[in-house]
Nucleic acid binder design. Structure first.
Lengths: 153, 153
DNA sequence: GATGAAAAATCCGCATA
DNA sequence: TATGCGGATTTTTCATC
């Protein structure tokens, strides 16, 4: 992966806030021509620096009212077992984010669902019926203070 | 906020994966004309259903290698104290996500930084020098299994 | 909600440093 | 290798039905 220069970083900073900013406007902001901006964006997309271009949707608007953090502890931590858990979490549409972490727990999972009833059903399917889950702790979000993938740099 | 219909939801589902999909292609996919698609998108943006349009950047590419979960417990939970903590977290560029949660802890915070040294500096500034933080627990991500704001609906 | 024309943005070749 | 310019193509936008 090529090293990013200051132009690239300046472009990314704009795109992370609004990727519908025109190349012309970006060019003005960073002192580059529009085609140059577009070539850089294209290159960063090809290299995976820009992973995706997405609309951020208000979860409440689509009926998903609850954001829930779950700490997962496994019984067995062999690579195969870990992979199996990863895979099941990856495939669950309720799972919005999932990280394998160091420390007292094994996974941190962010689940977004319509209601507690749906969450309870989710835990039953994913955790209680999975012999490899030692325990899990649930933290329900009451207030979203900040929710971004905007990286401050 | 107006209720969303099936067309709106179908459009959102596409936009959450790739908001550069042309209105024409979206129209084909959902059986609507391009201008219709565009009016719906415009309306949902105005209503806040679509919160933003952003590029998702690979943190590693911009030198941010570490994703860290932090559980925060406060000493005092008066509304003023909670607000003060919220505000300081909101303004910290290292904080990518932050939720006020129920349960044994008060806040779940997702921090993204270059290195452990930077994180330690962050904890000193934000937690140790803040008299209202009773304790915090750190979970460092070793592997990002899933990282999306793509809501499965 | 659909159609079609105008406006705007993106994309591409070419010349250049 | 990367930039800027100009024009072709595509996409968005807007008026009308």
């Amino acid at each position: 992966m090529t090293q990013l220069d200051d132009f690239d970083r300046a472009i990314l900073r704009i795109l992370q806030q609004d990727n519908r900013t025109t190349q012309h406007k970006i060019g003005e902001a960073v002192n580059l021509s529009a085609p140059s901006v577009q070539r850089r964006i294209r290159r960063m997309e090809a290299e995976g620096v820009i992973r995706a271009n997405v609309a951020v949707v208000d979860p409440a608007a689509v009926g998903l009212q609850l954001t829930i953090f779950v700490e997962l502890e496994l019984v067995s931590e062999t690579p195969d077992e870990i992979d199996a858990v990863k895979k099941s979490l990856l495939n669950a549409p309720e799972v919005q984010q999932c990280f394998y972490v160091t420390g007292e727990v094994d996974f941190m999972v962010v689940v977004v669902v319509e209601s507690m009833a749906v969450y309870e059903d989710f835990t039953r399917r994913m955790f209680f019926e999975n012999g490899n889950i030692r325990k899990f702790r649930t933290f329900v979000s009451m207030d979203t203070i900040k929710s971004g993938s905007a990286l401050g740099f």
